[in-house]
């Protein structure tokens, strides 16, 4: 395994393209955090996120031989991850679900010592799936509005509105979460 750990990114990807399972294992090891974090932000359910991230890597394993350029790997991997999430949403009809914010799922416990990731995930949980997807793709993935519009097949105006509304709500939630309780010193 040592040889693989020391091999360059391009080398590992090239070896994985030839069907080398150990190279692919190393590739999974190197990229798993990125994909699992993305999935966690998108679906707010650790078990589902793990399952979807696993599906992403299985799709990568099945089609990595078709990847024409090694330096296109990261973009390609991200596209597979986003498509996997969108497929899941479409399969579960979640894109047609209500666009109302679900305030009942989030009760900010003031003064709690939760991690940033936990706070953010809880705040994101308030957003309906369609809005959350837009916010995560914009803020986590750094995708532009037109890119998101194309990826999730929604009009550009709707995407912009979702991002603005969603970001505002998440910011409000995070601010509420960080506020100290009445008894605490400010």
């Amino acid at each position: 395994m040592n040889n693989y750990q020391e091999t360059s990114e391009a080398g590992i990807i090239n070896l994985a393209r030839t069907g080398d399972p150990r190279a692919f294992e190393e590739l999974v090891h190197r990229r798993q955090s990125i994909i699992r974090n993305l999935m966690r932000r998108l679906c707010n359910d650790v078990t589902l996120a793990e399952d979807l991230a696993q599906q992403v890597f299985l799709k990568v394993w099945q089609s990595i031989a078709q990847l024409s350029r090694v330096n296109a790997f990261d973009g390609w991997l991200k596209r597979i991850a986003i498509n996997t999430w969108l497929q899941y949403l479409r399969k579960n009809d979640a894109m047609r679900n209500s666009l109302e914010f679900n305030d009942t799922v989030y009760v900010p416990p003031p003064g709690s010592n939760g991690s940033v990731a936990m706070d953010l995930d809880k705040a994101l949980l308030v957003l309906p799936e369609q809005v959350r997807t837009c916010v995560v793709l914009a803020y986590h993935e750094g995708m532009s509005h037109p890119e998101i519009s194309e990826a999730i097949e929604l009009p550009l105006g709707t995407v912009k509105s979702h991002i603005n509304r969603g970001a505002k709500k998440v910011t409000e939630m995070l601010a509420a979460y960080k506020q100290p309780t009445a008894g605490e010193k400010v």
Partner: peptide, 30 residues
């Protein structure tokens, strides 16, 4: 990227990006 995004929220997203333990996940995938 020319779209205007909330800088503070961008920072929150960046901070939330935590390295996750790989072993179990990688084993399952393999």
């Amino acid at each position: 990227m020319t779209d205007e995004l909330d800088r503070d929220l961008l920072l929150e997203f960046a901070k939330a990006e935590q390295p996750l333990k790989s072993k179990e996940f990688t084993t399952n995938v393999m």
